[in-house]
Simulated assay, not measured.
Amino acid sequence: MKMPFENIKQLTDFKQCAGEINISVFKSENRSWLPYFVYLPPNWSLEKNYPLVLFFHGQGGDEGTFNKYVNAEQLNEWILKGEIDPVVIAGVRGDNDRDNVQWFTEENEALFVGENDGEFIRYCQNKFKAGIKNENISIEGHSRGAAGAINYFLKYPNRFSSIVGMGYVSDYTLKANILLGKENLESLKQGKTPLLLEIGSEDSFVRNKQRRASFEIHQFLEEVAVDHSFEVLHGVEHGFDTFWNYYTDEGVINGLAHLKFHEKARKSNNV
């Protein structure tokens, strides 16, 4: 079936999609037809349950952003070599107006934290057997996607297994996010959801526009004693690809380090 926009084909059978990143659409009650991408691991089967990593793209991005910078063969290799367990990675287009995407709008919240887990999460559970429990759902957000990921961390403590925010420079969201942190402080202090914040040392929004969101949310969380990790990545610019392809001090590609971070959190929560 061809949709009336951008010639995106609606996939209904994913049996031949294991080990690939595919783009499709689903019918959303809150946002009409909604484009999304999904990565299914090698040997994916409806007979098994899988953890789910949600990817929130930044301003100007869409359902193709992840696939633009991440190669399915890279993910396949990590899984087949046993470096990480099989995982499903998926994400939707945040808004048809890519310049105004906000992940915390009422329509988007209904996709991820609405009634009965959220509409897109239910879709992933039914279609891909992914994210069956909250303990198996993580969020990976970049730029405005990081602003959204942090919003869900602060507004819905313990709803997700783990959260990574890369390149959080959306200073206009700071006031609201700090208010959420204060409102939910006790739950956040007792929470089991690890948060990892990363900012690049060469981020143009920080260097040229004095955006301080990453540093200020880190300072706030430190002051109120909410456990989290904060890293400045040397040489990294603002683009998602520079975060994903950065090599950690341990010599590991950062994308793999993130997936290991999510996996460690899942296994800790499921003990």
Rank of each mutant, 00 (worst) to 15 (best):
E20F: 02
V113E: 05
I217G: 13
N245P: 05
G200Y: 10
A265M: 06
S28T: 12
A257R: 13
I84R: 06
D203Y: 11
A213C: 10
I21A: 03
S161A: 15
D241Q: 11
R31V: 14
V38R: 02
N136P: 06
N126E: 14
F261P: 06
V25Y: 00
F153R: 08
G165F: 11
V113T: 14
G131D: 13
N270K: 09
L40I: 08
G148H: 07
K133V: 10
L256Y: 02
V226R: 10
T12K: 09
R266V: 10
H142C: 05
R211A: 14
G61P: 07
G82P: 04
L185F: 04
V232W: 10
L256M: 07
N254T: 03
L256R: 01
E6M: 02
H57Y: 09
W33E: 15
L54G: 08
N208C: 11
A225F: 12
Q74T: 14
W78H: 06
G58R: 08
L174K: 05
H142A: 02
P35I: 03
M166L: 13
E115N: 15
E83T: 07
F26M: 08
A176K: 14
G19H: 00
I150N: 04
V226D: 11
T173M: 11
K9H: 09
E250G: 06
F120C: 05
Q102D: 13
N49M: 07
R122F: 01
N177E: 13
L233Y: 07
N96V: 07
F220T: 06
S204N: 08
R144M: 09
A149H: 02
N49A: 08
E115G: 09
N269F: 06
S187T: 11
Y123F: 15
K189C: 13
H262P: 00
A18V: 04
F112M: 04
R212Y: 10
V271W: 03
G61C: 00
I23Q: 05
Y247P: 04
I139T: 03
W33F: 08
F104V: 02
F153L: 11
I199T: 15
G200H: 08
G141Y: 05
D99A: 13
N208T: 11
Q74I: 09
Y123D: 00
F261S: 12
V92E: 00
F240G: 04
F160N: 01
G239T: 09
D99T: 10
L40A: 01
R207E: 12
E77F: 05
W78C: 09
E47C: 01
Y172T: 10
I199P: 03
V38E: 03
Y50V: 10
V271L: 02
E106M: 04
H258Y: 15
G167C: 07
N208Y: 12
A130Q: 00
E263I: 02
F128I: 00
R159V: 07
L52S: 05
I163F: 13
R98S: 14
D171P: 11
H258K: 12
R144Y: 05
V206P: 04
K267G: 03
V252Q: 14
R122Q: 15
I199D: 07
T242D: 12
L195N: 07
K133L: 13
Y39P: 01
N254A: 04
D13V: 12
K2T: 09
E83S: 13
E47M: 01
F5G: 00
P157T: 08
E186V: 08
F104Q: 13
V224M: 06
